[in-house]
């Protein structure tokens, strides 16, 4: 464990909690892409099946359970409890254009052709593009609530911090996982546009609004 990985995990946890609390407290999921949240629930489900097969540490197990639990709770709030506030007209990204290619790639490029490893690879590739429906929805509505931008910032920063974690682990442990690194770079690049808007607008107290 190193400082980049720990702060990355905490940033990820913060993002998940911020979103869950935002929906729960405001009793509304306006502006939130349910499709992205379904993809994240799928990412955690396929990645954390090893909860059933191997124990790494209490930290590892408890964080995985929290992530999976919050992901499904968020999907439940969006599609069940506060369904009336779900903005389906703007959440129109075709997720099959993500899941199918990612699924195919996971079969072609992986570390080991075993079910658990292919599912883990699928989850790594899927996570790198899972935010696209949410970013697409913001571009369609032309704006995002400030709390939503904080959620996205924490979510984007988490994987950027993991990039530093991988540099650290390569240098000090000789460990590297090319699949996770390449997917992590792609994932972080997809946030760059949002990072620019967040830093130049939201941090200056303005609302995040895109030229619609």
């Amino acid at each position: 464990m190193n400082v980049f990985r720990l702060t990355g995990d905490l940033s990820h946890l913060a993002a998940i909690i911020i979103l869950l609390l935002k929906i729960w407290k405001s009793r509304s999921c306006a502006g939130i892409s349910g499709k992205s949240q379904i993809l994240f629930a799928l990412v955690f489900t396929t990645r954390y099946l090893d909860l059933l097969t191997s124990f790494i540490s209490l930290y590892n197990t408890s964080m995985k359970i929290i992530y999976v639990g919050c992901a499904y709770a968020t999907v439940y709030l969006i599609y069940a409890k506060f369904r009336a506030t779900y903005d389906g007209n703007h959440d129109t990204f075709r997720v099959e254009f993500l899941v199918v290619p990612v699924g195919g790639l996971a079969f072609l490029v992986n570390h080991d052709f075993s079910p658990l490893e292919i599912l883990w690879t699928f989850s790594i590739y899927l996570e790198s593009v899972a935010i696209l429906p949410q970013l697409f929805m913001i571009s369609k509505t032309g704006e995002a609530e400030t709390i939503t931008t904080h959620y996205l910032f924490c979510l984007g920063v988490y994987r950027a911090l993991y990039l530093f974690n991988w540099i650290w682990r390569f240098y000090f442990e000789g460990f590297f996982d090319m699949i996770a690194i390449v997917a992590g770079v792609v994932q972080t690049i997809l946030y760059c546009d949002f990072f620019y808007l967040y830093i130049t607008k939201v941090l200056k107290g303005k609302k995040l609004s895109l030229p619609a």
């Binding site: 990985r5 990820h12 460990f175």
Partner: peptide, 10 residues
């Protein structure tokens, strides 16, 4: 690379 069997990252 020196990939650990178990993926120890979240």
């Amino acid at each position: 690379g020196t990939l650990t069997e178990d993926h120890d990252e979240l």
